[in-house]
């Protein structure tokens, strides 16, 4: 990841080398990036770092983190990140998870959220709401790339990346992220069948933030997901798709900052 202020180092957690970006000082905020790691270079990180110790790990197989064969689903990543919290002795921790990162945050919270002070989930995957024939989460891997872009973005020009201008090192990370996303989320597709039955365990004040125009996981899905977490609030952002923090950063930052307090 090119530096946007994050200082990257490696921590060995359960025998796995994990890349962790850090910035700022203050009460800690764990930022769990989405599957494309677009968050790492956003101004949002610097904003949060003005008053927080921001910690941004790369999940196994993402960024430059190792990916052992035995890790096969986000549940495994959640245990590793709970180790991270212990290793860094993070207390009263706010957790902000985007997309896949939101799913991982929910998996962590159902296991042990004692160290959590707040939980913000931004357009997360992770549960299946409907029956076997219902498509809860649009299939990004069997859909034409144009359709995926249209589902993901309110304004798809905001999601365009020019891969021909990237170095091989940067492209290797893009390719690793694409591959690892499939490793962890292919089957069951983008959800853990057990998670739905475990969400009642979450005690942390939780806010779901959703792009009104997200076509991959719709606001209706988000509201049903939020309904499974005791006391969870739901906020939606207009003119935004799956990444409301990228399409509407001002509206997003206002909601998140108010929630984190």
């Amino acid at each position: 990841m090119s530096a946007a202020g994050l200082d990257y180092r490696f921590l060995k957690l359960g025998g796995v080398d994990i890349e962790v970006g850090m910035q700022g000082a203050g009460s800690p905020v764990l930022v769990l990036a989405g599957e494309e790691q677009l968050e790492n270079t956003l101004p949002l990180i610097g904003e949060l770092a003005k008053s927080h110790q921001v910690v941004v790990p790369s999940a196994p197989g993402f960024g430059k983190s190792a990916r052992p064969d035995w890790m096969t689903n986000p549940d495994d990543i959640a245990y590793l990140y709970l180790d991270l919290i212990d290793a860094m002795a993070l207390k009263s921790l706010a957790v902000v998870g985007f997309s896949l990162g939101g799913w991982i945050a929910a998996e962590m919270a159902v296991k042990n959220d004692r160290a959590f002070s707040k939980l913000a989930l931004v357009d997360p995957y992770g549960v299946k709401i409907g029956g076997p024939f219902d498509v809860d989460i649009q299939d990004i891997w069997t859909s034409h790339p144009d359709k995926v872009a249209a589902l993901k973005w309110y304004d798809r020009t905001k999601g365009e990346r020019d891969f021909t201008k990237m170095s091989d090192d940067e492209l290797s990370i893009v390719a690793r992220n694409i591959e690892s996303f499939a490793r962890f989320c292919w089957d069951p597709y983008m959800h853990n069948p057990k998670l739905k039955q475990r969400l009642h365990r979450i005690k942390t004040p939780t806010l779901f933030i959703w792009g009104e125009n997200d076509g991959i996981v719709t606001p209706a899905y988000g509201k049903a997901y939020a309904g499974l977490v005791p006391g969870a609030k739901f906020a939606s952002i207009a003119e935004a798709g799956h990444y409301p923090h990228i399409e509407q950063p001002a509206a997003f930052n206002k909601i998140l900052t108010e929630f984190l307090g």
């Binding site: 891997w141 492209l171 290797s172 893009v174 390719a175 996303f181 499939a182």
Partner: peptide, 13 residues
């Protein structure tokens, strides 16, 4: 995704 190694997918990108 992941059908071919990362080096191939760098070329694909």
């Amino acid at each position: 995704p992941g059908y071919v190694p990362v080096e191939f997918n760098v070329q694909a990108l």
